[in-house]
Design a protein around this nucleic acid. Structure first.
Length: 491
RNA sequence: GGCCCCUUCGCCAAGUGGUAAGGCAGCGGAUUGCAAAUCCGCUAUCCCCGGUUCGAAUCCGGGAGGGGCCUCCA
């Protein structure tokens, strides 16, 4: 069950071996903070958060860095539109971004370096590139000389010659070749700027990632991640400038996540079909969103729609109902269970068909995750685990009179596995919100109705009993007659 | 024009050489006074055409349809 990772650089799955055994250095490109985050921004973070969780589970010590781009053309334009400063806008949007990550239970990011705080490091790299003949100053700007790097284009399988054919590349007489890209842009009056050996200016788009990843994670990363749309030119350029500077591999594995799409097209600011996360979370729970993103393999496009979200929610309810059932059976909550945080072999004693099944599904889950983080397959195993648990609870009458101490213990061991595995996906960390049902008055009134209905049923007065149930149904309250008594749920 | 990728049950979606996971919806059954919840069951040969192979959804060639990148984008 060796871990395998698809590497964009080689276009195939490879066995995973970090530079330093036992440690993983991961860098994922973060947002330009000029607008509120949309769901597309969360795909990468949720996926790589899961990657980190799984690597950590396997015993790796993972350090994960996500950059914040807080200076850029778009930021300047937007700040001007809003009549605010670039710093103030960047600060506000960074808070929004961090808040979204938090809500989606993306907890693994260790550092969020900001571009504006690493100008010195960038200048150092640019100077080094100029000294080595890989870059040249020109009219206040500094450009990377694509022709100086024989490897240029290796990430995206792109020939620099072809780039000239495209008419969409920014034309500039400051460049030697059309494919050359700006490392440093001389600033116009009124724009944010920093002093440099080439005059006042600000960094180009790609240089910050090289500077910050090298500073925080070293010259060679183990995993460099980002959206598929960043492959070219961003990652290609990052790669070129970094390796030209260090003469060492920039990243062992390049991982690119698929894009979120709405209907047939991708969701993106440039397409204008973005769904703001804050708005989204008013309609759907964060856990629903997270599961939607994890349901599809990370390299595939993910289809987004309210209907899909509603569907995911319904499937999630199967788990939520189980958690309530667990509570009824064990008295203690599922969320209070302590599960192993690291991989260990599963002890199947005492030998039983049930534990054997649990062990099998657990292996399926781990095998899927080990095969290029196949979260979709792993989630499939989780549903089967759920069914196995319910089947066992039925067969052993755990809510009724037939239960035994041994069966209860086995049941709990199975539930612990569910908890262990769902933690890897960042799911079920806490009880789902229960729609205001915790109100004391509501509890009391519901109990009153349930008691009245119970008396009616006892007297075989089903008309009254059914009226109570139907009227509650109109209020979106469902009654469930269980072995241990009647329960109810809202929605 | 160049470079990538995708096409699996009504919908979503795993599976990348050994005989098709799972979810949603639907149908039938067990259970129930009736429901709800739970469990069980319900013949998908994998876009089309060729080829390789003992054997292909999985590899190769061709065709059809869709998407991404080549400009800012997670």
């Amino acid at each position: 069950m060796a871990l395998r990772v698809y590497n964009t650089l080689t276009r195939q799955k490879e066995d995973f071996h970090p530079v330093e055994p036992g440690k993983v250095r991961m860098y994922v490109c973060g947002p330009t903070v000029y607008k509120p985050s949309h769901i597309g921004h969360m795909v990468g973070p949720v996926i790589f958060d899961t990657v980190k969780r799984f690597l950590t589970y396997l015993g790796f010590e993972v350090k994960w860095v996500v950059n914040i781009t807080d200076v850029d053309d778009k930021l300047i334009v937007r700040a001007r539109e809003l009549g605010t400063s670039v710093e103030a806008l960047a600060h506000r949007m960074t808070e929004d971004y961090l808040d979204c990550l938090n809500k989606l239970n993306v907890t693994g990011i260790d550092e969020f370096p900001k571009a504006t705080q690493h100008i010195t490091e960038m200048i150092e790299i640019m100077q080094g590139l100029i000294d080595k003949g890989h870059a040249y100053p020109s009219g206040g700007d500094v450009y990377f000389d694509v022709a100086s790097d024989p490897d240029y284009g290796k990430l995206c399988n792109r020939d620099p010659e072809q780039l000239e054919a495209g008419s969409r590349i920014e034309v500039s007489d400051k460049k030697r070749n059309p494919g050359d890209f700006a490392l440093w842009k001389g600033s116009k009056p009124g724009e944010p700027s920093w002093p440099s050996p080439w005059g006042p200016g600000r960094p180009g788009w790609h240089i910050e990632c090289s500077a910050m990843s090298m500073k925080l994670l070293g010259k060679t990363l183990d995993i460099h991640g980002g959206g598929l749309d960043l492959q070219f030119p961003h990652h290609e350029n990052e790669l070129a400038q970094s390796e030209s500077f260090t003469d060492q591999p920039f990243s062992r594995y390049w991982m690119h996540n698929g894009l979120l799409k709405m209907g047939q097209a991708k969701m993106a600011g440039s397409v204008g079909n973005v769904v703001n996360i804050v708005d989204l979370l008013k309609r759907h729970s964060a856990e629903t969103v997270r599961l939607l993103l994890l349901n599809t393999h990370y390299r595939s496009p993910i289809e987004y729609s309210d209907e899909r979200l509603a569907e995911v929610r319904r499937s999630l309810d199967n788990f939520y109902r189980f958690f309530e059932r667990f509570q009824r059976i064990r008295g203690g909550g599922f969320f209070a269970l302590t599960a192993p945080a690291k991989l260990a072999s599963f002890d199947e004693s005492p030998p039983s068909e049930f534990l054997n099944e649990i062990s099998r599904l657990r292996s399926t889950f781990l095998d899927c995750m080990s095969d290029d983080f196949n979260t979709g397959g792993a989630i499939g195993a989780l549903y089967e685990l759920l069914t196995a648990l319910n089947r066992f609870a039925d067969a052993q009458q755990l809510e009724g009179a037939g239960k035994t101490k041994e069966a209860l213990a086995e049941f709990e061991r199975g539930a612990v596995v569910l908890r262990e595995l769902s933690q890897i996906l960042g799911l079920f960390a806490q009880a789902p919100e229960s729609g205001g049902a915790s109100d004391e008055l509501v509890q009391g009134l519901m109990q009153l109705l349930i008691d009245l209905r119970a008396e009616a049923r006892k007297a075989k007065n089903f008309a009254v009993a059914d009226t109570i149930r139907q009227r509650l149904g109109q209020l979106h309250i469902t009654l469930e007659d269980r072995p241990g008594g009647t329960g109810w749920r809202k929605e």
